[in-house]
Nucleic acid binder design. Structure first.
Lengths: 203, 203
DNA sequence: TAACGTATGTACCGAATGGTACATACTGCA
DNA sequence: TGCAGTATGTACCATTCGGTACATACGTTA
């Protein structure tokens, strides 16, 4: 709403990306962004409502990040590689830390994470699945692969955040991009394998 | 050390697995496990040292869980499927929530997560990589695939914890097991592709 | 019995918490 | 000019925080 509120929220985001929010009181946050806890209460009402505002920001940021990434051109493996490079960019790390901190509260189903939980998987998996369908995958298998690709990417980022071992994780990210578009061995699931064969024919 | 302390820690673990610990004071934890905050301080010294004890427990639990899982028999894809079934078992979910809550603090490098950070990836990735080497993978590529498999599994569990969509995630887990042992297309990396071919010959 | 280490309860401490009351600026609009 | 809405500072509130002091049980062991 208010421009002052938005500016204040901007500063809070920047500050919290360095320190997290779980252990910080509104007074500490206020001090960190150069205002008084009185102002945070004034603009957001409650500590929890401040968290809600932050969650909405992160959610919106994720959505625009996703919109940027949907570039359906080029080889599918190369699209995957670019996807990894973009989401693992070091400049995104602070925001990503915040993302996973919120995630850790979402798995306990804290009420202020409701909107986060509603979109954290679907908002990414569905466009990804649609991209795979456009490239010839069977819809059911496309959903599986999108879900796996998303989960794997997030797991790799989690690894990167804690170990910082960029080199092997870049290699693992590239490997993921290659494996994810490969057909499975024809072990039963006929629909799946014909779908991946269709995918192979294209490209 | 003390048996009373261990029993108290047991009760704390059980209680925290339902509620998390980030938002709880030692007084609330004490009330939750039927003692006084005075006793928690007595046995653990400090709130932070209580967290350290919890982290050590989770770490030890992970280690024994891993030891249980190293069953180098059978088809590699099938080993992967069993791996997923075991780590995604619903009865493990509370402990896994706690694991990811600690993880979210570890990415901010909180001091009491030191031992967690030191082992959270390597303790799993290295045995996994060794298993792949035994099955004929080139050591360098085995490390990549182990790292990817671990990250993907954790990403899938994170998805499962927040969406609860067991069916598609089981499918995605099986898909991961199949893709992870497939050779990559021969696109440059000669060492890698020969290694995976060696792996294919075996089984 | 006496002494001692482990365990536990009661009561307290100063500091910090989230939130509120109230006064007061500054702004544009009537 | 005066009034209304937004914004901000100061001061305060009851509550809770992590941690401590001190007394006191309960075995064991000497």
């Amino acid at each position: 709403m208010s421009a002052a509120r938005e500016a204040l929220l901007d500063r809070c985001m920047a500050y919290l990306q360095d320190s997290g929010f779980s252990d910080l009181s509104i007074r500490e946050i206020a001090a960190g962004v150069g205002t008084s806890h009185r102002m945070l209460i004034y603009h957001f009402g409650t500590r929890e409502q401040l968290l809600v505002a932050i969650v909405e920001r992160i959610e919106a940021a994720q959505r625009t990040a996703l919109a940027d990434l949907v570039s359906p051109e080029g080889d599918l493996t190369e699209v995957g590689r670019q996807f990894w490079r973009r989401v693992s960019d070091p400049t995104l790390a602070p925001a990503t830390r915040l993302f996973f901190e919120i995630y850790s509260h979402a798995i306990y189903r804290r009420p202020w994470t409701d909107s986060f939980r509603a979109t954290v998987v679907d908002a990414w998996a569905e466009p990804l699945a649609e991209l795979l369908v456009q490239r010839g995958f069977d819809p059911a298998e496309a959903r599986q692969r999108a879900r796996l690709g998303l989960a794997a990417t997030r797991g790799l980022i989690l690894d990167l955040l804690v170990t910082g071992e960029r080199e092997i994780l870049d290699a693992a990210g590239d490997l993921l991009s290659e494996l994810l578009v490969q057909p499975t061995r024809a072990t039963g699931s006929g629909a799946g394998s014909t779908a991946t064969l269709r995918a192979e024919e294209q490209t």
